[in-house]
Nucleic acid binder design. Structure first.
Length: 250
DNA sequence: AGCATTGTTTCACA
DNA sequence: TTGTGAAACAATGC
């Protein structure tokens, strides 16, 4: 599920535990917690409190009190943040904070591609896709010879757009995913940015990227919800891509 | 059985 | 050096 909208909802969950004292940490999953050894994150956090929750693109982090280290979290392909919910039955809680008084916060992730890390490095991330300014968007997205779809997915260009949000945005903007990023006009780039912000805002408000106008039709045999044309399907930028060959031309 | 999957990193290659 | 594309990663669901 996790793209920018899901990550923002996860950030708000983390916000709920700000101020609580951490009394125990389960960091035994050495894949999710790599490169940390078991107990490393625990010893850095036990006794502290989270003081704030932040997000850039799909990456989450929380600051800690008394100059403690930041805790970085990523939802990977299937993760979510579960606050004060009973432990998952299938060992899907890959990383857990337990708080004084019995509450808990878990990174719940079937696929195990999520991450928990101390002092995360965000230097490779571009500006958040929901907040990037017009000039930065033009400069970062409107360059290069890669397909437009692939450019939207490049977290170093702008951060937060995943496969579904990219398809939803391109459909709203009526731009082909195959366009060359560096060949878009300034007008097209500004229009694309506006549609991206709208799609993102709607998805956050309505509960996830699934709730888009295009995504429900994004299946084999699906057709364009505006004009009824059967959707095209191909791999672009390494990801399965659906689009309307009639409206998203060129 | 085989394939696809809403993400990221690494590596080979032009 | 820069950019691009494929593969690997883990696990589940159809």
């Amino acid at each position: 599920m996790p793209e920018l909208p899901e990550a923002e909802r996860a950030r708000r969950q983390i916000d709920r535990v700000v101020g609580r004292e951490i009394v125990a940490v389960d960091d035994r999953d050495t894949y999710v917690c790599r490169p940390h050894a078991p107990g490393e994150i625990a010893s850095a956090l036990v006794g502290r409190r989270l003081t704030s929750a932040h997000r850039r693109g799909k990456f989450l982090w929380a600051e800690t009190d008394d100059g403690g280290p930041d805790l970085g979290l990523h939802l990977g392909m299937a993760g979510r943040i579960a606050v004060d919910e009973p432990p998952a039955p299938n060992a899907w809680d890959r990383f857990v904070l337990e708080f004084a008084g019995g509450g808990r916060m878990a990174l719940r992730d079937k696929r195990r591609l999520g991450r928990a890390v101390i002092e995360p490095d965000l230097s490779h991330l571009g500006p958040d896709a929901a907040e990037v300014g017009r000039e930065a968007f033009r400069a970062r997205v409107g360059r290069g010879t890669v397909a437009l779809k692939a450019k939207l997915l490049d977290q170093g260009a702008i951060a937060g757009v995943g496969n579904l949000l990219a398809d939803e945005t391109l459909w709203r903007a009526r731009l082909s995913p195959r366009r060359i990023a560096g060949e878009l006009s300034v007008e097209e780039l500004d229009h694309l940015r506006r549609q991206l912000r709208a799609a993102t805002r709607d998805a956050i408000r309505q509960g996830g990227v699934h709730t888009g106008r295009f995504i429900p039709h994004r299946v084999r045999g699906g057709s364009c919800p505006r004009c009824g044309t059967p959707l095209e399907r191909d791999t672009i930028g390494g990801r399965t891509t659906y689009w309307c060959p009639r409206e998203q031309v060129g």
